[in-house]
Structures are given as structure tokens and as C-alpha cells.
């Protein structure tokens, strides 16, 4: 006889299954609000986009109408402008991410050393991050203006000629990368700086005792120890960079020609200017799948490096 049975077995025999049942369902009740919010805000829009991409969208009722199969996906894959925007997005990512990462790690290392005013410099680095993208885009558009922009003014002071930063098809994407780098490198700096501060100082000190100079200490000791932090910073920045839209929207509008038309810009124009919501949805789904695949690969790579 158990202790419970001794205390009044009848009652405990009735309540035990109930208690088990409660134990099973109780956690679900607690997470239910979160699940509802997730379904409403995350999963429903995704399914709606998927549904719209497989339907003929009726702009008069503003809702997906008849089933269209994969027709819109076929159209998107045959669309030269779509592939052009994919190429521009790839070029932007390949230029911006390594540049921001290299600059972020280098600057973080430089300002990790305490020197008079280093705290002020660190604080200043936060400014670009808190400037909204639309303001950043507009501000840089003015700075890069060929006629009265400050950048060209400085160039002419040192004997240079005005440069068409945003009007030249060969330079426009580079200018966008510069603006994006100005805005996001401080983010990398802060993450890496936090990583450097939390590093175990002993290996660095040991290397110093062994005669390693600052560059050797950085390359052979600090960088390998920072690898997980760098990979995390890269992942977070990658997830932000594939959503690039607002700076380009304000600075170049995707032009000149389609020189800076990244995929998000093209999706926006297709949806809200051409009102082809079904094609825009198809592109969005493809974009989500591609982003998901690359993110998965980066995470696997990051785990492999950490091992």
C-alpha cells in the first residue's frame, strides 16, 4: 500500500489520471499565447504569401482568387529583370558583407586598447546605427550630389574631378555599398568588441611573453579565439543584408537603369507599383527559400568551424 492509499486511496485513484492529464497539457496552455502570436504574425503571412503566389490575385477584391498552379513561378524564372535583381543582390552581398566584417574586426581590435578618448570614439560609432535607413539614404544622397555634395567638394579641393556617385551605372552600387558599410560596420565593431573584452587574457599574455608582436598576437591568437563571435556577427549581418531595401529606395530608387535594383526593390515595385501581387509573392517565396538555404549552410559551416 502506498502512502497515498493509506491516506485515503479512493480519492487519489480518481485524481491521478486527471493530474497526469493536467501535467501533459499544462505546458501547452502556458505556451499557447506565444503560439497564437507566432501563427498570427509569422506563419499566417507566410502561408498567405504562398497562397497568393499560387493564385490569380484579384486586385478588385484584393485577395487571392483562382488557383494558378506554378504559373507565376515559371514567369518569374523567365523574367530577365528578376535575374538582373538577383545578380545585383549577389554583387551587393559579396561586396558589402566581407568589407563590413573586415573593417568591423580591424576597427574593433584597434579600439579595444584603452587610450585617452577611446570611450568617446566607441560611443561615436553607435551614431550610424541609430540613424534610420531612410535618413541615412537621403543624407548620403546629398553628400554624394555631384553639384553641391560635400564629398565632391573635398575631391575638388585636392585636385580631383566631380564624380557621379549615384548617376553612374558603374559607381552606383559601389556608392550603395559605401553607405551600407558606414551604417552597419559599427554594429560588427560592437559585437566583436564585446567578444574581445570577454576573451581569456592568458593566451594573449602567453604569446606576448613568447615574443609575439601585436600583429602576430592578433592573427594567431585573438582571431582564432574570436571565430565563433565573428561567425555570429556574420550571420546576424547576413540576415539584415538580404533585407536591403530602404537605403536604396531613398538614395537611388534602384537606378540608374537597374544598376542598384536589389531583389527586395524589385519585389516592392512589382507588388505596389505594377500591382502584380501574385508575381511579387512568388518572388518573395523564392527569396525566403534561398535565404533559408544559405542561412542553413552558414550555420552548418559555423558549427563545423567551431568543432
Amino acid at each position: 500500500m502506498t502512502r497515498l492509499e493509506a491516506l485515503g486511496g479512493q480519492t487519489s485513484k480518481v485524481t491521478a489520471p486527471r493530474r497526469n492529464l493536467r501535467r501533459v497539457f499544462e505546458p501547452y496552455v502556458f505556451i499557447l499565447p506565444t503560439v497564437i502570436i507566432l501563427i498570427t504574425l509569422l506563419i499566417y503571412p507566410l502561408f498567405y504569401t504562398l497562397q497568393a503566389s499560387l493564385s490569380n490575385f484579384d486586385t478588385f477584391t484584393f485577395s487571392p482568387a483562382t488557383f494558378a498552379g506554378f504559373r507565376h513561378y515559371e514567369r518569374v524564372l523567365q523574367d530577365n529583370n528578376f535575374w538582373s535583381s538577383v545578380r545585383v543582390t549577389a554583387a551587393y552581398l559579396l561586396a558589402a558583407l566581407p568589407l563590413q566584417l573586415a573593417l568591423g574586426v580591424s576597427i574593433a581590435f584597434l579600439i579595444s586598447v584603452q587610450w585617452p578618448g577611446s570611450k568617446i570614439v566607441r560611443a561615436l560609432f553607435i551614431i550610424p546605427m541609430v540613424v534610420t535607413p531612410v535618413v541615412a539614404g537621403s543624407m548620403w544622397k546629398m553628400l554624394l550630389d555631384p553639384l553641391w555634395g560635400y564629398v565632391n567638394y573635398l575631391l575638388t579641393l585636392i585636385g580631383g574631378k566631380p564624380v557621379l556617385w549615384l548617376a553612374d551605372t558603374n559607381l552606383a552600387l559601389i556608392s550603395v555599398v559605401i553607405i551600407d558599410t558606414w551604417r552597419w560596420t559599427p554594429f560588427i565593431i560592437l559585437i566583436i568588441l564585446a567578444g574581445i573584452v570577454s576573451l581569456d587574457p592568458e593566451p594573449v599574455e602567453a604569446a606576448k611573453v613568447d615574443g609575439a608582436n601585436w600583429l602576430q598576437r592578433f592573427v594567431y591568437v585573438i582571431l582564432p579565439m574570436l571565430r565563433p563571435v565573428i561567425l555570429s556577427a556574420f550571420l546576424v549581418r547576413w540576415l539584415g543584408a538580404i533585407k536591403m531595401f530602404d537605403i536604396i529606395y531613398t538614395a537611388t530608387g534602384g537606378g540608374p537603369g537597374n544598376a542598384t535594383e536589389v531583389i527586395n526593390m524589385y519585389i516592392y515595385d512589382t507588388a505596389f507599383r505594377s500591382l502584380s501581387f501574385e508575381r511579387a509573392s512568388a518572388m518573395s517565396v523564392l527569396m525566403v527559400l534561398a535565404a533559408f538555404a544559405f542561412t542553413f549552410l552558414f550555420i552548418r559551416f559555423s558549427h563545423w568551424v567551431e568543432r
Binding site: 486586385t59 529583370n81 551605372t169 540608374p256 537603369g257 537597374n258 515595385d269 507599383r273 505594377s274 500591382l275
Partner: peptide, 22 residues
């Protein structure tokens, strides 16, 4: 026409490509 903006968008893109010499 009800899809005037879509037409204008296409014209804008190709006009810009000609303007830049693409």
C-alpha cells in the same frame, strides 16, 4: 486603364536603361 501604374513602371525602367546607355 486600371493597370496604368504597371505600364508606367515598365516604361520607367526601360527609359532609364536607355538614359544610362545600357
Amino acid at each position: 486603364l486600371p493597370d496604368s501604374d504597371g505600364v508606367q513602371q515598365i516604361l520607367a525602367l526601360h527609359h532609364s536603361r536607355a538614359m544610362t546607355g545600357d
